[in-house]
């Protein structure tokens, strides 16, 4: 049992503070994995939009014909297996992005991105588990 001292707090994370911290490669208008910022940068109608690895639930990949579909699922309320303390519930009216699906014909690059995202998520999950263990 916990002592009751630790209240579930909103996990604070932030991909970038300034535009200049984003990698130059955003100019390529492609999906990017930025380990330094623990973030995935998605090209959404041309705009590079970062998502922190802590907001990601999982990723899946599908090959269909000459295209690769990459789906990124994010943490949101009402999901099976979702943990309450992972969600920033300060605003009950908040809307959540649950998923983005991207399509690309560049299968080798997409395979690498998929692997990088999975590796980054695994490492982040492991670090979080260790942090919790030491906090006890």
């Amino acid at each position: 049992h916990t002592t009751g001292v630790e209240k579930p707090t909103v996990k604070r994370y932030e991909s970038y503070k300034r535009d200049s911290q984003m990698p130059q490669a955003i100019g390529e208008l492609r999906i990017l994995v930025d380990y330094r910022a623990q973030s995935i940068i998605l090209p959404i109608f041309g705009r590079p939009v970062p998502f922190h690895i802590s907001s990601l639930k999982n990723a899946s990949k599908n090959d269909e014909g000459s295209f690769v579909y990459l789906r990124l699922n994010f943490l949101s309320p009402g999901q099976i297996g979702g943990k309450k303390d992972e969600l920033p519930f300060e605003d009950p009216n908040a809307q959540f992005i649950r998923s983005f699906t991207f399509r690309s014909s560049d299968s080798s690059r997409m395979n690498q991105i998929f692997k990088d995202i999975q590796d980054m998520k695994k490492a982040a999950t492991k670090r979080e588990a260790e942090r919790k263990e030491f906090a006890d």
Binding site: S99, T101, F102, R103, S104, S105, M110
Partner: peptide, 9 residues
């Protein structure tokens, strides 16, 4: 090259 095809909210 990477095209957004779906978003769920």
């Amino acid at each position: 090259a990477d095209e957004l095809v779906e978003m769920r909210l």
